[in-house]
């Protein structure tokens, strides 16, 4: 029997899964849309992974990360439930051991992680404002009647990117409309937009941080070659985009599993088990905590979200 480790990253937009061996080589992976149903997305990811996986491997531990990490971690019985910031850094380090800066722009959030000698030294994440993330790009693509996938190609044809305000996407959007109405070409506007994303990121998330090479760029937006080019232009250092960049969070969760001493054998048959969730609003005080109950085959597995004991859930069946 050869040991393997599973890592799952359940983000707001996409769900990623990887299985690695003891030397952190990726054996099998899957990347699917979450489509607002993390439990189903994970089942689909697991199905895909198990089909691709060499049957001589046995998964001995699993880990989760991403915004639905707790829900999925509970359902899978994971040993490692890690925040996405640490998981991304650890995953990236296993591929690019000398990385010093990780730039990440995802669907809803963006972050920067600074690393020195394999240890995270500092990080920052967008807080109140989701400006300049993937969802902004996709809404603008819709406005310009373009496919997000064609964005980079069109942008790269531009020789004279339109100047678009980068401080805030509300202004960026009105600027974009203005530039279109006064007659700038679509390619120039799209290129300007890609540049605005970079400037916005560096001003808001990367402000005050020293960005040192090697720089790795991740997250959905890193698939946009025009944004990568703008980053390189602005930072004046090469920006590395790994073809597996979207898997880094899942990889990090899997790598962390290697350090867990106790093994919890993982069974792919889990995909047949019925998991249900129920959100209830506690009415014992005006906090009205939103409590999430997770049921495995109709029995309560875990519940969370209550601020105090009044909202604690007793074991019960659905």
């Amino acid at each position: 029997m050869k040991k393997a480790y599973l890592g799952v990253d359940i983000g707001s937009i996409s769900t990623k899964g990887v299985v690695i061996d003891e030397s952190s080589n990726i054996l099998s992976d899957s990347y699917l849309w979450t489509l607002g149903n993390p439990l189903q997305a994970v089942k689909n990811v697991l199905n895909e992974i198990s089909q691709k996986l060499d049957k001589s491997y046995t998964i001995v531990n699993s880990g989760t990360t991403g915004s639905a990490r707790r829900l999925i971690g509970t359902a899978l019985g994971s040993r490692v439930i890690k925040n996405e910031i640490s998981a991304h850094a650890i995953g990236t380090l296993s591929i690019v051991p000398d990385v010093q800066t990780i730039l990440e722009i995802g669907g809803q959030d963006s972050k920067i992680i600074l690393i020195n000698n394999g240890v995270i030294m500092d990080y920052a994440m967008n807080t109140i404002c989701a400006a300049g993330t993937g969802s902004f790009l996709s809404s603008q693509a819709k406005r310009l009647d373009l496919e997000l996938e064609d964005f980079a190609e069109i942008a790269l044809t531009s020789e004279n990117p339109a100047k678009i305000a980068a401080r805030c996407t509300v202004f960026a959007e009105s600027d974009l409309v203005h530039k279109a109405q006064i007659g700038h070409s679509k390619a120039d506007i799209v290129a300007g937009l890609c540049r605005a994303i970079v400037l916005n990121y560096l001003n808001n998330v990367g402000k005050g941080k020293q960005i040192k090479s090697p720089v790795v760029f991740q997250g959905g937006v890193s698939k946009n070659a025009a944004v990568v080019k703008e980053f390189e232009k602005e930072l004046k250092v090469p920006v590395y985009v790994d073809p597996d960049g979207h898997l880094m969070g899942a990889l990090g969760a899997a790598v962390l599993c290697k350090a867990v001493k106790e093994e919890t054998p993982f069974d792919f048959n889990l995909t047949d088990i019925n998991f249900e969730t129920k959100g209830i609003e506690c009415s014992n005080c005006p906090n009205n905590c939103e409590i999430i109950c997770v049921y495995k085959n109709k029995n309560l597995l875990d519940a969370w979200g209550n601020k105090c004991e009044k909202g604690a859930q007793k074991l019960h069946s659905l």
Partner: peptide, 13 residues
């Protein structure tokens, strides 16, 4: 989430 990452960072360091 941010606190967790910050705590991870200082402990790893």
């Amino acid at each position: 989430t941010r606190l967790e990452a910050f705590y991870d960072m200082v402990t790893m360091k």
